[in-house]
Design a binder for these strands. Structure first.
Lengths: 198, 198
DNA sequence: TTTATTCGCTAACATTCGTTAGTATATTAC
DNA sequence: GTAATATACTAACGAATGTTAGCGAATAAA
């Protein structure tokens, strides 16, 4: 009956959350069972419920944890006094950074959010829609001042976001190029597609 | 005890497959139950087993049906005597076409393949890896003859494929732009990122 | 019409699932 | 040390899962 080992500055619940992120990414939310999760935490399944309310609550916290970080970054970028094209590159770099450094949570947030239960589900979808609108608004501003070629902005946003979400494949790859080179490549390819022909 | 209604030229199994594609996309493979599927076919769950071997078999057939179409297209494109940049645009257009016209199957193949069981799983992963390699080879050829700017080809392939996979969001969107405009937008943004600065 | 086959039904199976109740032990507060 | 709290355990629950067996009705073949 040994208790869960804990690092200072991180609660038992946080440990469970991080293990859940890894498990949900690997198996998918529905296929990941509480008994699997318990095993990876080193405890019996029922014991988890001393720390969490439900399986769904784990998904809530993971998804909104990630969503909130992106929303906060968007606030910062919008407030910054820099050219639109730099705002976009800044956001791209942030997405890539998050994908690399908080891979499990971001992946789960990206691919498993549909298993959220209302009202969290609607809430999440609204936040997502809002984020994309704000992203598109930056692109549209760039189009107006001719720093970005005239394209359909919502289309461009989805391309950018999904392209970055695809980093997963590298993460597991053995021949991974380092993060800086990856970032530079993506900014070149994606940014290059946005800049007007000069 | 009415039998399943059938169009000419399509077996009962094909009907089940198409309903399964829609259900697996909506709920995810694990969350979609055989009883749900049965209901959408208009029959009891046990009756499905007069036509199929297992739930997993449905996933096999959906995934490999899509994968084979893409492989065949790749064969054609490789054999064509056209510039590399046109080969790439041709592939991009094909991906978009498939995404629009066989949306459910392509989506399931893209997002739910991990629930395949071995040996199908390994087989599928190999095919996928091979497809990406061949795609990257076209880009590398383009780089060598300077029709494409020097970037990391495997990175570019993943960006392209995941960007196109993101069309999902439009499909359900009410404000959908028409398919041709969509295709043109994507070729502009993605292709524009590949062409060398002139 | 008779026979054979296809196919849908009901009932049931063994598992697995998320979760709760109740109890015992370990840690913390006093 | 003692009381209070936190937490892990075992056992069990009801529900849902994929699938099989066996029966009867609909269709096709003779």
């Amino acid at each position: 009956m040994a208790r869960i080992k804990i690092d200072k500055n991180s609660s038992r619940k946080e440990l469970i959350l991080s293990k859940a992120a890894a498990l949900f990414r690997e198996k998918g939310f529905k296929a990941a069972s509480m008994r699997h999760l318990a095993e990876s935490v080193g405890v019996e399944a029922a014991s988890l419920y001393n720390h969490i309310k439900s399986k769904t609550e784990l998904l809530h916290e993971l998804c909104f944890g990630v969503a909130n970080r992106f929303m906060q970054k968007m606030d910062e970028v919008e407030a910054a006094k820099i050219p639109d094209i730099e705002k976009i590159e800044d956001l791209i770099r942030f997405h890539i950074y998050e994908m690399i450094h908080h891979y499990e949570e971001v992946y789960v947030c990206d691919r498993e959010w549909k298993y959220l239960a209302d009202p969290y589900l609607s809430n999440f979808q609204n936040q997502r829609r809002m984020y994309r609108k704000r992203f598109a608004a930056i692109i549209e501003s760039g189009i107006r001042n001719k720093s970005i070629k005239p394209i359909d902005a919502p289309t461009a946003v989805l391309i950018l976001l999904h392209a970055i979400g695809g980093i997963e494949s590298w993460h597991r790859s053995t021949q991974k190029i380092d993060a800086d080179a990856l970032t530079q490549n993506m900014v070149t390819i994606l940014g290059g597609g946005l800049k007007p022909v000069s």
